[in-house]
Design a protein around this nucleic acid. Structure first.
Lengths: 233, 233
DNA sequence: TCAAGCCATATTTTCGAAAATACTACCGCT
DNA sequence: AGCGGTAGTATTTTCGAAAATATGGCTTGA
C-alpha cells in the first residue's frame, strides 16, 4: 500500500503548512514566541525548515485566528498583548460560552453527560498527582481544555464552536503569562466541579452564571498579577 | 516619490494575494462561484492570472472566513450551503449583533449618531431611485452593509466586530440566493428606519428586539423562497 | 461479475530563485 | 543643524518548475 511518507514528521494534519501552523500556534500560546515579536522569514525558515511559501500559508492561517498580525508589505509579527485586548476577549468569550453552555445543557444526551463527567475525572487525576502548580503542566492544560470543550460540545453550533476555540487559544496565552508570575495557583478545581454538577444536573441558569464568573475570575487574576507586562493601549 | 506600481491593478489591499482574496470573496458571496464548486488551481490560475502560491494564500484566507473549505491534499471548494448552516449562522449572528448594538448604544457619542443617520439616509436615496427590486443593486448592498455596520460601530469590541463581519458575509450569500427567487422584495426600509430611531433614541432594549427580528425575518424569507436549493444535511 | 492491486494521469503541495517593495544611511542643500 | 532626496541593503511577495499525493481506469484472479 501507499507508505505514507515519513520523510517529514507531520504530527498534526496532513500538509506541512498545517503542521507548521500547529507548531507555531503552540509556541505563540506558550509565549516561546513573544507578543509583538517580528517574524522574519529568514529566521523562520531556519527554525522550521520550510520554504517562504509554506511559512506564509501557516502565518496567514494564524493571522485569521488572531495570534499573528499581518502588516501588508511589512511582514508578520506575533499579536501583541494588551489590557484592552484581554478585556475585549474576555467579554466576547463570556457572551459566546454562556450561550453555548445553555444550548449544550438543553440538547445534551446521555453520551454528553458521560463525556463531561469523564473529562473532569481525568482533570482530577492529573491535579491529584502534582502537589505543585499543576497549571504549568501541558497535560493538565490539555485536560482542562477538553473539560471546557466537553461542556459545550452538545450545543449544536459548529460556527460558534469554531469561534470559541480560537478565542480560547488567544486567552490561553494570557493565562500562561499570569501563571509565571502569580504567587500560587487559584483553586480552580472547585469551580470546575461546580460547573460539572450544574451541567449534568441540567441547571442551565446556574451553569451560565458559573461559567461567566469562572472566565471573569481567571481574567481578574491575570490582570492582578501580570497587567504590568502589557502595553498600554 | 515612490510611484506605487500600476503594473498590476490592486483594487483592495496592497498585496496581490489580498486583492485576489477580495475578488474571490465577492464572487462567492454573489454566487458567481457556486456553493460546493471545486476550485482547481489550473482553472483559478487562468481566471485570476496569479500563481499557485498566491492563489493558495487567498484561499487559505477565505477558508478561515468560512466561505471556502479546504480538504487537505484534496484541494479547495466553495463552502456548500445548507439549511442547517443557515440556521446555525442566523442564531450566531443574532447572539452577537444584539450584544454589539446594545453596547454601541451605551457607548456611542454624537459622531456615532450622525454616522447612523447619514448612512440610513444614503440607503433611502438609493431605494428611492429604483422602483424595481433594489436589493440586486450592488450600490444598495454596500449602503445596506454600511448602515448595519454603523449601528454597531461604537460597541468597542474589535474582536466581535471582526467575527460579525465574516458572519455577515456568509449570510449575504444566502440573501443573494433568495433575492433571485422570491416574488417581490420584502419591505426592509421600515425595519431599518425603526432600528435607526431606536438607536439614536438610545432605546437599547427596543433596538435589540428589532435587530433580532430583522435578522430572523430575513432568514425566514430565505427559507421560504429558496430552501429547496439547499442540500439536506 | 466482482473485488483488489497497480499503473498512468490529474492535481495539489512544496521549493528556491527572481521581482517588488520597504527600510537605512548617507549626501547635498537651505 | 535640519530637511529632502537618493542609492544601497534588507525583507517581503510572487513566480513557475519539481516533488508529493490523490484519482480513475485497467488488468488479474477468484
Amino acid at each position: 500500500m501507499n507508505v505514507t511518507a515519513f520523510k517529514r514528521r507531520k504530527e498534526f494534519g496532513k500538509t506541512l503548512a498545517s503542521d507548521i501552523a500547529h507548531r507555531m500556534r503552540n509556541e505563540i500560546v506558550t509565549c516561546r514566541l513573544k507578543p509583538g515579536e517580528v517574524l522574519k522569514f529568514d529566521t523562520l525558515r531556519l527554525a522550521y525548515g520550510a520554504s517562504f511559501t509554506t511559512l506564509r500559508e501557516a502565518l496567514t492561517c494564524l493571522a485569521a485566528e488572531g495570534l499573528v498580525v499581518a502588516e501588508e508589505q511589512r511582514g508578520f509579527k506575533v499579536a501583541p498583548i494588551s489590557l484592552s485586548d484581554l478585556i475585549d476577549l474576555t467579554r466576547a468569550r463570556i457572551l459566546i460560552e454562556v450561550d453555548l453552555i445553555r444550548r449544550s445543557i438543553e440538547n445534551g444526551n446521555d453520551d454528553w453527560e458521560i463525556a463531561v463527567i469523564s473529562s473532569i475525572h481525568r482533570l482530577g487525576i492529573i491535579e491529584g498527582r502534582e502537589v505543585e502548580d499543576y497549571a504549568d503542566n501541558p497535560e493538565w492544560k490539555l485536560a482542562h481544555r477538553e473539560f471546557h470543550e466537553s461542556l459545550v460540545a452538545a450545543c449544536g453550533s459548529p460556527t460558534l464552536l469554531g469561534i470559541r476555540q480560537s478565542l480560547f487559544e488567544r486567552a490561553e496565552r494570557y493565562r500562561n503569562i499570569s501563571a509565571r508570575f502569580r504567587p500560587r495557583p487559584r483553586d480552580k478545581a472547585g469551580e470546575h466541579r461546580a460547573l460539572m454538577k450544574a451541567a449534568v444536573g441540567r441547571d442551565a441558569d446556574r451553569a451560565c452564571e458559573l461559567i461567566a464568573r469562572h472566565i471573569q475570575n481567571t481574567t481578574d487574576n491575570v490582570i492582578k498579577y501580570a497587567s504590568e507586562l502589557f502595553s498600554q493601549n
